[in-house]
Write a protein that binds this DNA or RNA. Structure first.
Lengths: 184, 184
DNA sequence: CCGGACATGTAAAGAGTTACATGATTCC
DNA sequence: GGAATCATGTAACTCTTTACATGTCCGG
């Protein structure tokens, strides 16, 4: 039940149309909560029906017409409620770790190439995060509002997670049995 | 599409009944691929229908009777195929990071208690992993088969991830605005 | 022989993904 | 005015979660 709150957050940061949101979910917010445009349009409809958001006055009700939304006070209140509410962490699901566990049983044949590919993807993501940090979070000292500090904290989580994955994958590739003794 | 392969892996490690599997998914495999008993029973039915597994000979077809499964050659072949196949990493979803991002907009009121709770949960998980490492992965040198090394590698991923979260959460708690200037 | 734990399932709702459909705008 | 692109949406399907249902076994 987090998608509506992700959308409310994005709309509070900046009122947007469905496609604008979709684009922002490919970056930024999407780094830790992804969503497709189908999910977003469906959810925008629900949020509007519940009175949490409304379409901006330039109302063209037709299809193919851009429609921007803004958050209403009830929506902000709901987001505040959700932010403060206790939530249990969801159990992780990581297909790659599962595959390594399977490989421990059926052999590592064919695995190396995909591990290298994953390593490359994580390195790119890490570089992207570090670029954002350079660009957006190197202000003059004292310029750090609570809002900026929180955003930076979230970004650092991304950086540290990607750092972990690159290091772990590099280690995994070292430990993988070579082609000689790779059993199946 | 990973649940069937998680089950095949678990069954290859040790033939089990549905409830046995459910218990094992609360530990071990479940550390990185969780599943409820409803999912497991449904998937066992599918896997049996597809000829990947079969019920062990002590066949009591009745309800309330224990029924154990083992993997057939076709099931092992499918697991090998899946292990070697290229797979794109799924985009992450982390509700806690999303909440911090929301808090950057609507304020951090009420957040601290839940962050402390998460920190405690991650510390416990880390301690559990470290206990497993002490118990199962401190053999005499040279005693490390490829299988054991892979299992240890997966466990180390868990340890390092939990280590990251404990450190990051501790840092987050430090940076959180105190009650004095915590705006809403 | 009854209550509780064990064991296997069914039903329905919710969330996410994939494929497709439709109208508007813009560029040639 | 035709093609490509932008923008919004529908439909069908899969996966996951939650709640419930049913039967067996065992201790008292």
């Amino acid at each position: 039940m987090s998608l509506p709150h992700a959308i409310l957050t994005a709309l509070l940061e900046k009122p947007s149309s469905g496609l604008d949101l979709t684009r922002r979910f490919d970056k930024s917010i999407g780094y830790f909560w992804s969503a497709t445009h189908q999910q977003i349009y469906r959810e925008l409809g629900k949020l509007e029906a519940e009175g949490y958001i409304r379409a901006l006055p330039s109302e063209q009700p037709a299809r193919g017409q851009k429609k921007s939304y803004e958050v209403l006070p009830a929506g902000r209140a709901e987001l505040e409620r959700w932010t403060a509410a206790a939530q249990d962490p969801k159990p992780h699901r990581d297909a790659l770790l599962l595959r390594l566990r399977a490989a421990a049983v059926v052999g590592t044949a064919g695995l190396e190439a995909d591990l290298r590919r994953h390593l490359d993807l994580h390195r790119r993501q890490l570089a992207e995060y570090e670029e954002i940090e350079r660009r957006d979070f190197t202000p003059a000292p004292g310029d750090d509002s609570a809002q900026v500090r929180l955003q930076h904290l979230v970004l650092r989580a991304g950086i540290q997670l990607e750092t972990f994955w690159t290091q772990w994958l590099a280690q995994a590739l070292e430990e993988l049995p070579g082609p000689a003794d790779r059993a199946s």
